[in-house]
Design a binder for these strands. Structure first.
Length: 283
DNA sequence: AAACAAACCTGTGCGC
DNA sequence: TGCGCACAGGTTTGTT
């Protein structure tokens, strides 16, 4: 579910309510959530540490600890991070609980990792050894929000390659953080068909696409991300985002395009993913 | 190199 | 009401 704007919203929540607090105790239910290492490794790596920052690369949430290690959280399809008062009843599929010490402004709380589909992951790793423990971090492409994404950046990324634009945007090694929603929304804003190949783009079109990706992601962050009908995605406090009301194509197949008002949004499978686009606006 | 399918899981919504 | 199937915001792996 969560793409860059949703993970960024969670990151800001962690920054506001978790950074600076000590982890007193850790419970791990499902071992699958900590499959990269083990229950023991997560518990030992997190217990009695202070979370000193909250960072993000693409869809990876990275929290440096005062021990020198870093906590990595990836929400994948259905993961959620939630804060709750100590002792509050836990929802189904709560796989990890970190007990947080009170501080001047907050009472004792718990940080929950809830994940019905169990694709999500948590691990405490040593950043000095990241090449071995978290190799995918080093293979991530540019983060359009952290690094920016200029026309020239995108020109370099597509140079000498022939790829469908949808696949290009979804490839985390090229651009980190764009998922199915924001790929479709970016392509619509750039007025480019999802199945156009990168080698057919003019310089002007590359510029439109780079600008569209950056603009869509920033607007989505400003709206707190997208919460769809299933309300799977919520922030740390359990509140949904509202960018879904600005979606122009995603999940609108069969509906009239609100940009041109003269064609219906089509659905196809491109890059192996359900894809929504306007046959009139997008060339 | 790039496209494609399958795999990892559980929940939900829809047609019958 | 119940059943079976398609599908879901991600990523990796293996095959054409």
């Amino acid at each position: 579910m969560p793409e860059l704007p949703e993970v960024e919203t969670v990151r800001r929540g962690i920054e506001r309510t978790v950074v600076g607090r000590r982890v007193l105790r850790v419970e791990v239910g499902r071992e699958r959530t900590v499959r990269r290492t083990s229950r023991r490794a997560l518990i030992d790596g997190l217990t009695d540490t202070v979370v000193v920052a909250a960072e993000r690369r693409g869809k990876y949430l990275l929290c440096p600890l005062d021990s020198g290690d870093t906590l990595m959280v990836h929400l994948r399809m259905s993961g959620r991070l939630l804060t709750a008062p100590a002792g509050a009843p836990r929802p189904a599929h709560t796989h990890v609980v970190a007990h947080l010490a009170a501080n001047a402004s907050r009472p004792p709380e718990e940080l929950w990792f809830v994940d019905p589909r169990t694709f999500g992951e948590m691990v405490v790793f040593d950043p000095a050894n990241a090449a071995v423990e978290m190799p995918e971090l080093h293979r991530l492409g540019r983060d359009p929000v952290v690094d920016g994404l200029t026309t020239r950046d995108l020109q370099r990324l597509v140079a000498g390659r022939r790829r469908q634009l949808k696949a290009l945007l979804l490839d985390q090694h090229v651009v980190a953080g764009v998922g199915n929603i924001y790929a479709d929304e970016s392509l619509h804003r750039a007025r480019l068909r999802p199945d156009r190949t990168s080698d057919t783009l003019t310089g002007r079109e590359i510029g439109r696409l780079a600008a569209a990706v950056v603009a869509v992601l920033h607007e989505a962050i400003d709206a707190g991300g997208s919460t769809l009908a299933d309300t799977q995605y919520v922030d740390l406090e359990g509140n949904g985002g509202w960018f879904q009301v600005h979606h122009r194509v995603y999940d609108r197949a069969g509906e009239r395009c609100i940009t041109c008002g003269r064609a219906d949004i089509e659905r196809s499978v491109t890059a192996g993913r359900s894809t929504c686009w306007c046959p009139r606006c997008q060339r």
